[in-house]
Simulated assay, not measured.
Amino acid sequence: MTATTEAILVLEDGRVFRGESYGAVGETIGEIVFSTGMTGYQETLTDPSYKGQIVAMTAPHIGNTGVNDEDFESRRIWVDGYVVRDPARVRSSWRSSQTLDAELEAQGVVGISGIDTRALTRHLRERGSMRGGISSASTDVAALLARVTEAPQMKGASFLADVTTEQTYVVPAVGEKRFTVAAIDLGIKGMTPRRMAERGIEVHVMPATATYDEIAAIGPDGVFMSNGPGDPATADHAVATLKQVLAARTPYFGICLGNQVFGRALDRGTYKLVYGHRGINQPVQDLTTGKVEITAHNHGFAVDAPLTGTFETPYGPGRVTHVCLNDDVVEGLALLDQPAFSVQYHPEAAAGPHDAAYLFDRFVDLMSAEKAGV
Rank of each mutant, 00 (worst) to 15 (best):
M1E: 13
T4W: 06
I8R: 01
E12G: 05
E27A: 10
E31G: 11
T36C: 13
T36H: 10
Y41D: 10
Y41F: 14
Y50D: 11
K51Q: 12
A56F: 01
M57Q: 14
A59L: 12
P60N: 11
N68C: 12
E70G: 07
E73S: 09
R75H: 14
R76N: 10
E105M: 11
A106F: 04
A119T: 08
L120W: 01
G132D: 02
I134E: 05
A142D: 13
A143K: 06
R147K: 13
A151H: 12
K155S: 15
S158E: 12
L160S: 12
A161C: 02
A161F: 04
T164A: 02
Q167C: 06
Y169Q: 02
P172D: 01
G175P: 06
R178S: 06
T180S: 11
T180K: 13
I184F: 00
D185C: 05
I188Y: 09
A197G: 09
E198I: 02
V205L: 02
A210G: 06
D221G: 07
D221N: 15
G230K: 10
A235G: 03
Q244M: 07
G258L: 09
N259G: 12
V261L: 04
K272R: 15
G276E: 01
I280H: 13
Q285F: 08
T289W: 08
E293H: 14
G300W: 10
F301H: 08
F301R: 04
A305Q: 04
L307M: 08
P314M: 08
P317A: 10
T321L: 01
T321K: 03
H322I: 05
N326H: 13
G332C: 07
A334H: 07
P339Q: 06
A340I: 03
E348W: 05
A351R: 03
G352N: 00
D355T: 10
L366Y: 12
S368L: 14
K371R: 15
